[in-house]
Amino acid sequence: MPDETEIPQPATLLPFRSYVALGDSFTEGLNDPGPDGGYAGWADRLARLLAEGRPKLDSGHYDFRYANLAVRGRLLDQIVAEQVPQVRRMEPDLVSFCAGGNDIIRPGSDPDLVAERFEAAAVRLRESAGRVLIFTGFDTRDTPVLKHLRGKIATYNAHLRAIADRNDLAVADAWALRSVRDRRAWSEDRLHLAPEGHQRIALLAARALGVRTAEDPEAPWPPAAVLSATEAARENLQWAREYLVPWVGRRLRGESSGDHVEPKRPDLAPL
């Protein structure tokens, strides 16, 4: 008869025992409140999914370690300088690398040049990590102001897919994820995901890694009320005052929302 004190083990053992997340506010998890008073986000949610596919140890922790080095506002070169070198020290089984979005939305940026720098960093990561996961950018066609950058984002995405093919990277295709086109996937600032949006990205990332999930990232949303043209215009004006103008102002002043912010999980630690 089995020992009644034995810790239940997962039916399907996942190969990832360690995971490091690199990036900016998207990966830090902004606007997804966590249980500790900070932010959770899709990377934390993905880490939990991966951990649950590993055995539990006598300590009660999963046989899985996770670090999140992402900091809001970071540009690609900052991520490469501050975060990428840490991967060589940690040598994780999996690293997610999402960078370049803050570069692309800046006036005068060249997605071709950003992609070249991204690939150089991805090659470095492949030398120190068992698997590298990247993300395409979101389709911004329904987002005020950012919809005018859709062509640049699409160009960058094309580069990212080619980079993934050349370097054997896993790709979570956020551009193709139709469910996050729904307004409810986004927080009030329309720049960062809401909790449900983060959950759908976590599921998308898991599936890109070949991990089965009970939930579907493309599950339909419940019916929503339709705003009139007047209500939509009023909502857009309020959003511009509360979020767009301060965001533009920070860029004009050369400030970043990530100034003086430290990574929330700087070292590989058990869940």
Rank of each mutant, 00 (worst) to 15 (best):
E4Q: 12
I7L: 14
P8C: 11
P8Y: 12
T12K: 15
R17Y: 06
Y19K: 02
V20A: 11
A21V: 03
A21Q: 02
L22P: 00
F26G: 02
F26Q: 07
T27V: 13
E28T: 13
G29D: 03
L30H: 07
L30G: 02
N31W: 06
P33C: 03
D36V: 04
G38H: 05
Y39A: 03
Y39P: 02
W42T: 01
A43Q: 03
L46I: 10
R48G: 06
R48T: 11
L49C: 05
L49I: 14
E52A: 13
R54S: 06
P55Y: 15
L57N: 09
D58C: 08
D58A: 15
S59F: 09
G60M: 11
Y62C: 07
Y62T: 05
D63N: 12
L69Y: 04
A70G: 09
A70S: 15
A70R: 03
V71A: 04
R72L: 10
I79Y: 00
V80C: 04
E82C: 08
V84N: 03
P85R: 06
Q86P: 01
Q86V: 06
V87H: 02
R89D: 11
E91W: 06
P92D: 12
L94G: 01
L94N: 01
F97G: 00
G100C: 07
G101V: 06
D103V: 02
I104E: 03
P107S: 12
S109E: 05
D112C: 11
D112T: 14
D112Y: 13
L113C: 08
V114I: 15
A115Q: 00
F118R: 00
A120M: 08
A120Y: 03
A121H: 00
A122Q: 00
V123M: 01
R126G: 01
G130K: 12
G130D: 09
I134Y: 00
T140N: 04
D142C: 01
H148A: 11
R150E: 14
R150L: 12
G151F: 08
I153H: 07
A154V: 03
N157K: 08
N157D: 13
A164W: 07
L169V: 05
V171M: 06
V171W: 06
A172Q: 01
A172M: 05
D173N: 07
D173P: 04
L177D: 03
R178D: 15
V180F: 05
R181H: 14
R181W: 05
D182V: 01
R183Q: 08
R183P: 01
R184Y: 05
A185R: 01
E188Q: 09
D189K: 09
D189C: 11
R190E: 02
A194W: 08
P195Y: 08
G197V: 03
G197L: 08
H198E: 02
Q199D: 13
Q199I: 09
A205N: 03
L209R: 04
R212T: 10
T213G: 05
A214N: 06
E215I: 04
D216V: 10
E218T: 12
E218R: 12
A225K: 13
T230G: 07
T230N: 10
A232Q: 10
R234N: 13
R234A: 15
N236G: 04
L237G: 07
Y243W: 14
G249C: 07
L252Q: 11
R253A: 15
E255P: 07
E255L: 13
S257A: 15
G258P: 07
D259Q: 13
H260C: 10
V261Y: 05
V261N: 05
L268Y: 06
A269Q: 09
A269G: 07
